[in-house]
């Protein structure tokens, strides 16, 4: 009996060794490493042709593909402020006169899902018109268009989306406002106020074309 148990123990041990002999990827990532930042823009656009911008006064909260509310938490305020600072640093001028339509409109969305579900970025875009009414930018009856397409980015926990709209050149024929730049942040700590500066900095740093 003892002679039979010995090789069995060795073989079972071999099995456990195989399972244990693997470096755990997630344990070797700190929170900063875990985040992914994705940007895309309309390459036909020359950003130096735009001068003024304005940010939406709140952030749209999208949960499981549905607009829940517009919000302005401490996190949201920090985020809008950081975006505004980046735009100013890059030579754009904040349009404070509410009676004027700026050249660029920036709107931000917090997209969250329950752990049981996943949402792809393309699905999120599909419902964009209902998240932000183009009327907000002075273009009632218009829709949004994205001349560039992302691959399918699927997220479980949440994502932050910053979309920049061309308000200077609305497509009056198709009644559409065109997005010229999108920044997407995903991963651990994406909704942590302490990470806002880094998130916005990274998204703008990798968009060197975004200059006056």
């Amino acid at each position: 009996m003892k002679k039979k148990i010995f090789p069995l123990l060795i073989l079972v041990g071999f099995g456990f060794l195989i399972q244990g002999c693997r470096k755990d990827v997630l344990k070797n990532l700190d929170d900063d490493d875990a985040r992914v930042y994705i940007t895309k823009y309309d390459s036909s656009v020359n950003f130096s042709n735009y001068q003024t911008f304005r940010l939406a006064d709140s952030v749209s909260v999208v949960r499981d593909g549905q607009l829940v509310r517009h919000d302005l938490t401490t996190y949201d305020a920090a985020l809008l402020s950081a975006i505004s600072q980046q735009m100013v640093q890059r030579g754009f001028q904040l349009e404070t006169d509410q009676t004027k339509v700026p050249d660029l409109g920036i709107q931000v969305s917090r997209i969250t899902t329950e752990y049981t579900g996943v949402v792809s970025y393309n699905d999120y875009w599909g419902g964009y018109d209902s998240y932000w009414d183009p009327f907000y930018w002075g273009y009632g009856g218009y829709g949004y268009s994205f001349p560039y397409a992302f691959g399918t980015y699927t997220f479980r926990e949440g994502a932050l989306s910053i979309d920049m709209l061309d308000l200077k050149n609305p497509d009056t024929g198709a009644n559409q406002l065109r997005s010229v730049w999108t920044g997407l942040g995903r991963g651990t700590g994406i909704f942590n106020t302490n990470n806002v500066a880094e998130i916005v900095q990274t998204l703008f740093d990798q968009s060197g074309y975004l200059n006056r």
Binding site: K23, V25, N28, L29, D33, A34, V36, Y37, I38, T39, K40, S43, Y148, A149, F150, G151, T202, L203, Q206, S207
Partner: peptide, 14 residues
């Protein structure tokens, strides 16, 4: 990215 996007990430290949 294959879709033309710019992706800032820590990459782990296993």
């Amino acid at each position: 990215g294959s879709d033309g996007s710019d992706i800032s990430t820590v990459l782990t290949n296993t």
